[in-house]
Simulated scan of single mutants.
Amino acid sequence: MRNTIVELRLSSTERREINRTISKMAVANHGIDRDELLREFDPNASGEFFASHARGLEALRQDGMVAS
Rank of each mutant, 00 (worst) to 15 (best):
M1W: 05
M1Q: 00
M1F: 02
R2Q: 09
R2W: 01
N3F: 14
T4K: 08
I5N: 01
V6W: 06
V6F: 04
V6P: 04
E7Q: 11
L8W: 12
L8Q: 11
L8I: 11
L8E: 04
R9W: 08
R9M: 08
R9P: 06
L10F: 09
L10V: 14
L10D: 15
S11Y: 11
S11F: 07
S11H: 02
S12D: 12
S12Y: 09
T13D: 09
T13F: 13
T13G: 14
T13Y: 12
E14Y: 08
E14A: 15
R15L: 13
R15A: 14
R16M: 11
E17N: 12
E17V: 14
E17H: 15
I18Y: 12
I18L: 13
I18E: 11
I18T: 09
I18M: 08
N19I: 08
N19G: 13
T21Y: 02
T21F: 02
T21R: 02
I22F: 13
I22G: 05
I22T: 07
S23R: 10
K24G: 12
K24I: 06
M25L: 07
V27I: 13
A28I: 02
N29P: 05
N29Q: 03
N29I: 03
I32V: 11
I32N: 07
I32S: 03
I32F: 04
D33F: 15
D33H: 14
D33T: 15
R34A: 12
D35K: 06
D35G: 03
E36S: 15
L38G: 05
R39N: 06
R39C: 10
R39Q: 11
E40W: 07
E40C: 08
F41T: 02
D42Y: 01
D42Q: 00
P43H: 01
P43F: 03
P43S: 04
P43D: 01
N44V: 00
N44E: 02
A45K: 03
A45R: 05
S46C: 08
S46E: 08
S46D: 06
S46H: 05
S46Q: 04
G47T: 09
G47Y: 07
G47P: 07
G47K: 08
E48N: 12
E48K: 06
E48Q: 15
F49R: 03
F50L: 09
A51Q: 11
A51D: 08
S52T: 13
S52W: 13
S52H: 12
H53C: 15
H53F: 14
H53M: 15
H53L: 14
A54R: 15
A54M: 15
A54V: 12
R55Y: 14
R55T: 03
R55C: 10
R55S: 14
G56V: 09
L57T: 11
L57R: 09
E58D: 10
E58A: 05
A59Y: 10
A59R: 09
A59S: 03
A59G: 06
L60H: 01
R61T: 00
R61C: 00
Q62N: 09
Q62I: 06
Q62K: 07
D63V: 00
G64C: 00
G64P: 00
G64N: 00
M65C: 05
M65E: 04
V66T: 05
V66N: 00
A67C: 08
A67T: 10
S68M: 06
S68E: 06
